[in-house]
């Protein structure tokens, strides 16, 4: 068996080797650009501090963008959907059971109805 064989997907194909080569090439280019950069950088000196137009640096916790702020626009745009779907996850055990038994009953009707 050829270990680097191309994966046949029925419609197309995929060979990780080509991707890896591209990866290595991109890595070399990145390394070339990086190595041509500024040599005077020293860790642990004034250089590592962020420069904010001369303003004092805010506290570390304040500059970090917290998770709750991410994708606000997405959930807001789909608020009509989320307003319906989130309450379904009510956390009440009776509802969980009702969904399960309801789907069972629905499929029962469908399968027996089609079968007879």
């Amino acid at each position: 068996m050829d270990p680097i064989a191309t994966l046949e997907t029925g419609f197309g194909y995929w060979n990780p080797l080509a991707w890896l080569i591209a990866f290595v090439v991109a890595g070399i280019i990145a390394w070339v650009i990086w190595s041509a950069g500024e040599k005077g950088y020293r860790k642990g000196t004034e250089q590592v501090k962020p420069f904010l137009s001369g303003n004092a640096e805010p506290a570390k916790g304040d500059v970090h963008l917290r998770a709750g702020n991410l994708y606000w626009g997405f959930t807001e745009a789909l608020s009509g959907y989320y307003e319906r779907i989130v309450p379904l996850h009510s956390g009440i055990l009776n509802d969980y059971l009702l969904w399960y038994l309801g789907v069972t009953a629905l499929l029962l009707v469908a399968v027996i109805g089609m079968g007879i």
């Binding site: 068996m1 050829d2 680097i4 064989a5 191309t6 994966l7 990780p16 890896l20």
Partner: peptide, 8 residues
């Protein structure tokens, strides 16, 4: 890296 080997 070796999907085809695993699939086969």
């Amino acid at each position: 890296l070796f999907p085809q080997v695993v699939v086969d």
